[in-house]
Write a protein that binds this DNA or RNA. Structure first.
Length: 283
DNA sequence: GGGATAACCTGATAGC
DNA sequence: TGCTATCAGGTTATCC
């Protein structure tokens, strides 16, 4: 899926079309994505004003004037596409409906926001804004890696005694929220830690190294507009370009980019996911 | 309880 | 051209 930087990029792209604006019409074209949509979702959205757009982990949260919050998750292939806004000017020129356009929001002002998701691993739900933190998908999430609650003490405590590989531990959203397969690979490379190492064997010096690297990789990726592989687009349909900065992800058999290292990037599978790393300089 | 695996679903790509 | 196998940015349910 879009990981944290992609979701943040999408959120920012949605702001001009949605923030402060009323949803004039909501069309829901199927009963479910990963889970059934909440009852009467179209009716509950229609007429609501979007007070603000927040992000928690890989979720976008739209706070509505009705006292409810719309939760949006893009899954692996979800896209939020905006049409009808160009350079701050609104128009009513929208592309023809496409396959897998599941939810369409026609916004006050003329913009249209379309949720398109081929694989349907995405989700949408409505909840009382006051009870957001208790939502089953949000309640158990770890801290935001770019927030104040994520620090060495927290990470060290989450890794301590764990017999799972560090790769899996960083992917576990209970430990830290928002990292996905790409950015964990990139983080471990920059930290020169092998993805195969057990979490409990990562030293405190390495934890100290990991925290700022996690922040750095995510911040750089957000600045680049995220990474575009197969499905991901920014809300305006543009590609992100952080993928050009990948040092190990999807670079199997390439020379290791670490200066002075003569290693070759390897691929292995851990808990069903590809891990890319340099066996020579990641220890 | 912790950790690994299968499952959800479609599309793109590689190989024959 | 066309078939088959494999893989994909995530998360949950299930099994050992």
């Amino acid at each position: 899926m879009p990981e944290l930087p992609e979701v943040e990029t999408v959120r920012m792209g949605l702001l001009p079309a949605m923030e402060g604006r009323r949803i004039e019409k909501a069309a829901v074209n199927r009963p479910d994505l990963r889970w059934p949509f909440p009852p009467r979702m179209a009716e509950r959205l229609t007429g609501a004003q979007v007070l603000g757009l927040r992000r928690r982990s890989k979720y976008i949260l739209a706070d509505l004037s009705t006292g409810e919050t719309l939760l949006i998750h893009l899954g692996m292939s979800g896209r939020m596409l905006v049409s009808g806004v160009q350079a701050g000017q609104f128009h009513h020129d929208h592309p023809a409906p496409a396959k897998h356009d599941h939810v369409v929001l026609d916004m006050e002002g003329g913009a249209r926001v379309t949720f398109n998701d081929a694989r349907r691993f995405g989700a949408m739900d409505l909840m009382a804004t006051a009870a957001c933190d208790a939502h089953p998908l949000l309640a158990a999430l770890g801290p935001e890696p770019l927030g104040n609650d994520f620090h060495e003490t927290h990470l060290a405590a989450r890794l301590k005694g764990r017999a799972t590989p560090i790769k899996s531990a960083l992917l576990d959203q209970h430990n830290i929220a928002g990292l996905g397969n790409i950015y964990v690979c990139e983080v471990l490379f920059r930290a020169q830690i092998s993805p195969l190492r057990l979490a409990r064997d990562v030293t405190s010096a390495e934890v100290v190294r990991l925290v700022p690297i996690i922040r750095e990789v995510l911040t750089e990726a957000i600045a680049a507009g995220g990474s575009s592989l197969k499905d991901y687009r920014q809300a305006d349909g543009e590609l992100g370009y952080f993928q050009h900065t990948f040092r190990v992800y999807d670079r199997e058999d390439s020379p290791c980019p670490t200066p002075g290292c003569s290693g070759t990037i390897a691929r292995t599978v851990q808990s069903g996911r590809s891990s890319f790393y340099c066996p020579a300089c990641q220890r």
